[in-house]
Amino acid sequence: MSPENNIVELRGLRKAFGKKVILDGLDLDVPRGESTVIIGGSGTGKSVLLKHMIGLLRPDAGSVKVDGVELSTLDNRELTRFRSRFGMAFQEGALFDSMTVAKNVAFPLVRLGLGSEKERAKRVEECLALVRLEDAGAKLPSQLSGGMRRRVGFARAIAHRPEVLLFDEPTTGLDPVTKDVIDELIVELKETLGATVVTITHDMESVFKIADWIGMLHGGVIVARAAPGEFRSLTDPRVREFLGRTVGAHQTH
């Protein structure tokens, strides 16, 4: 694959918190316009990896290239502007609890100075309709359930039509129906926006529904990366163990 086809390229990424090494020379390519899913157990540093892609964390060593631009060469203001090409949905939504749902979704549009007030209101409606929450605009985040908050977080992440969408454990701890809704939404977003999607999760059921590529994070590196069909038949013991465990755990439910 030629480098132009990768929107994100990570090389030799290293990050430690104190003495605890989280990422240990990690390499990863994220192909443009496709859906990459990173799997791995809890505490393996999936969120840390995601936060490096958008410059929320800076690596101790190694390089993060987004669309050919090395993030470490950008100063804070350039980085801020660069980030407008991304949309990120956080694990628990991370909605601003002092603002209504509609104001939350409009936030990136206002901050980036996109559109008139009328156009913004229209876009907010569109995004809320996309996550099936068209009536929730006037509510406060505290009046919503966990799954609804997360969907609002999605709407907020896509409002400014970003090129790259990052999803941090979008379905963890949700009921099966909401899970399906969110999985479908991710696929739909990729197809309708033409966006690159990077999702981290340990929910294997979702993985096979939404992934074009699956990468497995273990011991601070990506130990395997393959298309879903191929991934199932990998013989790497770490992959087998992860697949076996999650499938096993699922059957006991």
């Binding site: 936060k51 958008i54 929320l56 804070n76 801020t80 502007r81 980030r83 407008s84 991304f86 949309g87 990120m88 956080f90 694990q91 628990e92 991370a94 909605l95 601003f96 609890d97 936030f107 990136p108 901050r111 980036l112 907020r156």
Partner: peptide
């Protein structure tokens, strides 16, 4: 609270210092 619920990260992601 905003820090631990990732609202501060969300601000940064949405081009806001």
């Amino acid at each position: 609270t905003m820090r631990v619920t990732e609202q501060i990260d969300a601000l940064e992601v949405m081009a806001t210092d």
